[in-house]
């Protein structure tokens, strides 16, 4: 009998891909390490002050964490989780993304109205790009041709050409734009506007807003619906949008720009990340101090895990060697 159990366990362990979640805890100045499959909090590791954005290096040997109040991006060894270096991020780094070339890291400096580009090999800033007031979200097209930055008070999307690191175009969007995300085919850019409670779909070819979605939830005040984190499913059909204090994640059909479903998660849901096998979606919930785990196929919330104070950013490591993160998820579109 026991033999069968062992065989069964072995069968499962080879079938499901294990993943580890790395979650920055803004108020604990720490990193929570969680097993993605079981939802178990494995350990908590100290970090710099007010850690927010987090992402793996392209080769997954290092983990980058924006320590906002220390005005730096910490470099952690991905295995030991010890700080091994720093990047000159400029003041108050929050969100950042790594270019598909694995070399350039784009970070927004909220206090200085700038986006800083850092060379990850030389660990130096190679460009400072003047953008609107309070730059926030960064998104990079999978082909690496465009880097976009949203500015919260200017209410714009700034289109940066990585060839010369210059702003080439600007798109006006609804008030307080937060996150941006390209569709996996690079045709569209999605931008969440926190104060307007909307999601804009921008046509990348002409940089114009082609469709807009205003979220409405029965029984929830419009003021509380504040879209923040946005994550595109590699199937190029679905988009997941974290709605902040509405405590829900909206599942959006990107073609019709309609909401398929609202998933009730923890309080002030912020950032999102997929498991490497696309079975699970993880959300960081800032106020309820936990993460929610969503079954992506069934679109059902299965679990919530208490991780520490103000969970903010999330990066996912595929224990078979691949990695993805809320800040730098780059997956190939699924084959039809």
């Amino acid at each position: 009998m026991n033999k069968y159990v062992v065989i069964l366990l072995m069968f499962f362990s080879t079938l499901s891909v294990a993943d580890t979640l790395y979650i920055t805890l803004e108020k604990d100045n720490a990193l929570a390490v969680v097993d993605g499959e079981t939802g178990k909090l494995l350990k908590t590791v100290p970090l710099g002050q007010r850690p927010r954005g987090i992402a793996f290096s392209k080769d997954q040997t290092h983990l980058y964490v924006a320590a906002s109040d220390d005005d730096t991006i910490q470099i952690l060894d991905a295995t030991t989780l010890k700080v091994v270096g720093h990047l000159p991020s400029g003041d108050d780094p929050e969100l950042f993304k790594i270019h598909p070339n694995g070399l350039w890291l784009y970070v927004s400096n909220e206090d200085d109205n700038k986006v800083t580009v850092i060379d990850l090999q030389k660990k130096i800033a190679i460009a400072e790009i003047a953008v609107g007031v309070e730059p926030e979200g960064i998104a990079i097209a999978q082909d690496g041709q465009w880097v976009v930055n949203t500015s919260e008070t200017t209410n714009m999307v700034h289109w940066i050409d990585p060839q010369d690191q210059l702003v080439k175009d600007n798109t006006l969007v609804d008030p307080r734009p937060r996150a941006a995300e390209f569709s996996v085919d690079g045709q569209w850019l999605f931008v969440s506007s926190e104060i307007a409670g909307s999601l804009s779909r921008i046509d990348v070819s002409n940089k114009q807003v082609s469709a807009k979605l205003h979220f409405k939830i029965a029984g929830v005040d419009d003021e509380l619906i504040q879209p923040v984190g946005v994550l595109a499913h590699p199937n190029n059909e679905l988009l997941f949008v974290a709605l902040g204090p509405a405590n829900r994640v909206a599942v959006v059909d990107i073609k019709t720009m309609t909401v398929k479903k609202y998933l009730l998660v923890g309080q002030r849901v912020w950032n999102l990340a997929f498991s490497p096998d696309m079975k699970r979606l993880y959300t960081t919930n800032g106020v309820s101090n936990d993460i929610s785990i969503i079954d992506v196929d069934k679109l059902k919330v299965t679990k919530s895990v208490r991780v520490g104070h103000y969970p903010w950013g999330i990066a996912v490591k595929d224990e078979s060697g691949e990695s993805s993160s809320a800040s730098s998820l780059r997956l190939e579109p699924s084959k039809p």
Binding site: T153, P175, E194, I195, A196, E223, L224, P245
Partner: peptide, 10 residues
């Protein structure tokens, strides 16, 4: 019209 005033609502 909606103005962002750092108070969590428009």
């Amino acid at each position: 019209f909606s103005l962002a005033g750092f108070k969590g609502v428009k």
